[in-house]
């Protein structure tokens, strides 16, 4: 490494490195090992991570501004639904060794954020296996992808963590960001157990699509069918836009939609929803959970705070348009 030009010329040839090593050698006599051999476990885990990541990394591809992972030798690629929302498009898949391949988007389940791509060029493409085993909370996992876009000189940065939650998303603390979408989450055997999808403000909230929805929609996606929508999540609506940036305890109405149940009931922009259907709504998640359990036509009581006062309104929920 030639760093000398970052520093003003000092003029003294100093045998720094050798001296440093000598001191280090003396100090390294004490290699930390705890009584129950914990360090050995860590060393084994580290070795496994290094080797497995190196083995699977070639299969992590760039697709447009996102990522994907090749799961068959003839070039079937799993990715996120939002990376390839339209089937039948010509796209280019990029490999870290510099190769590119012509490919075509297959179908997608946009509700679960699953997507598929097929490489059209013949070849033996680097690929990985999929794990159909049920993931476990606390399981070590690692993520690869192309955050901030595919950069061949940089490579694919490795992130290591554990499975934190299971559910419609597999949540881990492998930090992911824009550009990682569609990239793979691996178990320690190097099998894909998730596909990067979304994040939230918390550093430990990294959402990966589990394998099950891919398997459930496999044949439809292969047949280039695209279905589902993230909008379809809640059937009944109040007709409001929520200000997610507001940090008050409650749900802040950013805007009331015209001709909506909220408008009819007299709610106003800026109202803070504190109770919905008799239960506290301390945050958006709590509110959304309650709302999703309702049907169009249901009558609910909503309590909001406005100018220091609490106001109760009765709403008849509407159908999503």
């Amino acid at each position: 490494m030639n760093l000398t030009h970052y520093f003003k010329a000092s003029g003294h040839p100093r045998n720094r490195a050798a001296a440093g090593l000598a001191v280090a050698a003396l100090l390294s006599a004490s290699m930390p090992v705890s009584a129950d051999g914990k360090i050995d476990d860590l060393q084994q885990l580290e070795a496994r991570l290094i080797q497995t990541a190196e083995r699977v990394r070639p299969a992590v591809v760039g697709i447009g501004g996102g990522s994907g992972v090749v799961v068959s030798e003839d070039g079937l690629v799993l990715t996120a639904g939002h990376v390839v929302p339209k089937a039948g498009r010509d796209i280019t898949v990029r490999f870290l060794d510099g190769r590119t391949a012509k490919a075509r988007s297959l179908g997608a389940d946009l509700g679960r954020d699953c997507g598929m791509v097929r490489i059209e060029e013949p070849g033996e493409w680097p690929h990985v296996e999929i794990s159909d085993a049920k993931p476990e909370i606390g399981q070590w996992v690692f993520g690869l992808g192309h955050p901030s876009g595919f950069q061949i000189k940089r490579g694919s940065p490795l992130r290591f963590g554990q499975v934190l939650r299971l559910g419609s998303y597999l949540v881990s603390d492998c930090a992911i960001t824009a550009g990682d979408s569609g990239g793979p989450l691996f178990d320690m055997d190097g099998k894909v157990i998730g596909i990067h999808s979304s994040i939230s403000n918390s550093i430990t909230r990294n959402n990966h699509v589990p394998i099950k929805p891919f398997r459930d929609g496999w044949d439809r996606m292969l047949a280039s069918e695209t279905w589902g929508s993230r909008r379809a999540a809640s059937r009944a609506v109040m007709g409001i836009m929520v200000d997610r940036q507001d940090e008050s305890k409650g749900v802040r109405i950013g805007r009331i939609m015209p001709d909506s149940p909220s408008k009819t009931a007299g709610l106003e922009d800026g109202d803070l929803i504190v109770r919905f259907d008799g239960k506290n709504t301390d945050n958006y998640e709590a509110f959304y959970k309650l709302l999703s359990g309702k049907n169009p036509g249901d009558e609910v009581e909503v309590v909001v705070q406005r100018d220091g006062k609490e106001i109760t309104a009765k709403l008849e929920l509407a159908k999503r348009r």
């Binding site: 934190l164 419609s168 998303y169 609506v237 929520v242 998640e285």
Partner: peptide, 30 residues
Amino acid sequence: PDQESAAPEQGPQEDRNQGEHSRGSRDAGK
């Protein structure tokens, strides 16, 4: 501002009655 219908961070299927609820553990994580 986000529409209330937008899926929260738990994901679109989280709150449907599909028998799969989100499980987590505060004790997990690096």
